[in-house]
Design a protein around this nucleic acid. Structure first.
Lengths: 334, 334
DNA sequence: CTGAAAGCGCTTACAG
DNA sequence: CTGAAAGCGCTTACAG
């Protein structure tokens, strides 16, 4: 295509120079080039350009899709938007890729490492996710959200999962609840472990592994199933900390079916502060995290790494805060 | 990097041949190459490859994000998953890109046309969306969902927006409702026009423009505002056809605030059959569309176009069907 | 300010 | 079966 632009009179080197630095090109040449470009409807070939420049101005946003729960996750949604905004302003294109199988995992690793993007944000990875592991082994710029357990060197940014769960659990205990259970998140999700750690820390000496049941997935039904099991193990349970709002809703359903009143008999709290969390009945007490900021911050970091900065070992945690609503009864006096 | 692989003893041409056709390479050479690849942790450069091959094995999935309502749209969600699955099986990588500004629109057009992908699926475009217009002007393989009004030549696949709305409106009339209003979708969305057309057809001689109000967006609040206006224009309205489930929920809220009983005083129906549509109170009567199939089918078509097939003018409509629930009162006898 | 030339990392006929 | 060579479409020192 360049030949054609050159058909406007000048050598293609000059055209290229015009397209890039815009310096050292005479006004006459510039004008001729502009007309020619319009005429030919010229679009530079990115493959050729990035082949020599070693820069694509794109960054991958990689998501592991557990079934089709992908978009329905408001946290992921906000993260993606946050990252996209930062990248867009920096004139980089965010390329979202969904890994939904081993095959797609291999493909994505190859694509990303093969120079399709200058860096990658790994969102919603499993614990020890193959994609994360493969990318972490190389010098390719990546930043993860949460902690997929692929070594401390990989830069990460996350909301305060441990602190948030710890805070909400402590508040729950401060309202006088004594038999507090946990509907833990699915094992594959890194945040499950982090939130559990917060729960355990808050329970301190009162912690009992018997009152902890992991859900099979983030789906409501699995939250209900976990709650059923919790009730079986301890019918006198008086509070439950769920690892997500969706799980909390499931727990509420199970409790209602079992004839328990919320919050009178059992207090329920979640995590995420999903858009609909204030609409459940009763409205859900939960932990609000700023996922948009997590995404934005991740983007800033990859961009810096793509610029050559060494961020290995970098880790930052964004504050989260408890939002108290009726599902946990009256707020404790603080 | 190729030099290094060649450092395994053979010319890089042979290595390339091994990597591709895998034919005409002696067993000895193959073995040596394999070890070398592992040793060097070789990943072929995609830019270089696609530069000569003119094929990227990637297809773009372009979405216009209205604010951050992006992921929350279950239809879009399902479409993306449907497309991703088909592409993944065909060993193509889906690259999702969000257009959130004029600047990003220009960037995406350039990226896509610049050979980053072999084709593009345009989902959730505005009417006359600049991205759609720019891409339609060229020979670049694209397929749109719904009808962004960029000419009949662009292949499109869609669920039956017209027929679905027409059917649900006719059923509503069959239950005896006579003063039927419409909460139309936002003007920018192509589906708004299509669904309106279905509504109008079903109303036939009874159609009254007075009983049609367009919502400012797909958000619940705008559905409520439109319903308020509808009530102002005709307090005796006895049914309302909303262009989406989210709008229908807003309408229900407005009606409740106005002291109307649903469905006794006013019947409400939506469109989409969102996952939560059966959970509203009363459960929502709506139109179910197979967005997953729409996405899958779109993917099949771009793939064929990328293969060289000419699909201009191609258009297909996937069936949608009415799901009757309590928000519209007892089902009509058919 | 502007050409000619080399090179980015690959693939692919073309001879051997 | 395998090398040498040309070329994909661009950018970038290097001379003029």
């Amino acid at each position: 295509v360049h030949d054609v632009a050159a058909a406007a009179g000048i050598s293609h080197a000059t055209v290229s120079r015009y397209l890039n630095k815009r310096a050292y090109v005479s006004a006459a040449a510039a004008a001729a080039i502009e007309t020619a470009i319009r005429e030919v409807d010229y679009i530079p070939n990115r493959a050729a350009r990035s082949l020599v420049r070693r820069r694509t101005h794109a960054v991958a946003f990689i998501v592991r899709a557990a079934g089709d729960s992908f978009f329905s996750d408001p946290t992921l949604n906000a993260m993606a938007m946050g990252a996209n905004t930062v990248l867009s302003v920096a004139d980089h294109q965010m390329l979202m890729m969904i890994v939904d199988s081993d095959r797609s995992a291999d493909r994505i690793i190859e694509i990303v490492r093969g120079g399709t993007a200058d860096g990658a944000i790994l969102a919603a990875m499993d614990h020890h996710d193959p994609v994360a592991v493969a990318l972490a082994r190389t010098a390719f710029p990546i930043v993860t959200t949460s902690d997929p357990g692929i070594g401390a060197a990989v830069p990460r940014v996350d909301t305060d999962n441990v602190g948030g769960t710890r805070a909400i659990t402590e508040l729950l205990r401060a309202t006088g609840r004594t038999r507090v259970g946990e509907v833990r998140g699915p094992d594959a999700a890194p945040v499950s472990g982090l939130r559990h750690r917060g729960f355990k820390a808050a329970m301190a000496g009162e912690y009992s592994a018997r009152r902890v049941v992991a859900a099979g997935s983030w789906h409501t039904e699995d939250g209900a199933a976990a709650m059923d099991e919790l009730l079986r193990r301890d019918p006198r349970i008086d509070a439950v900390v769920a690892a997500s709002d969706s799980l909390a809703v499931g727990a509420m359903e199970a409790l209602r079916r079992a004839g328990r009143l919320i919050p009178d008999d059992v207090a329920v709290v979640g995590f995420d502060d999903a858009p609909w969390a204030s609409q459940t009945s009763p409205p859900l007490t939960t932990v609000r995290q700023d996922a948009h900021a997590t995404g934005a911050r991740s983007a800033e970091l990859v961009l810096r790494m793509a610029e050559g900065e060494d961020l290995s070992g970098h880790s930052e945690v964004l504050a989260s805060r408890v939002v108290w609503r009726d599902s946990a009864g009256p707020a404790p006096s603080m």
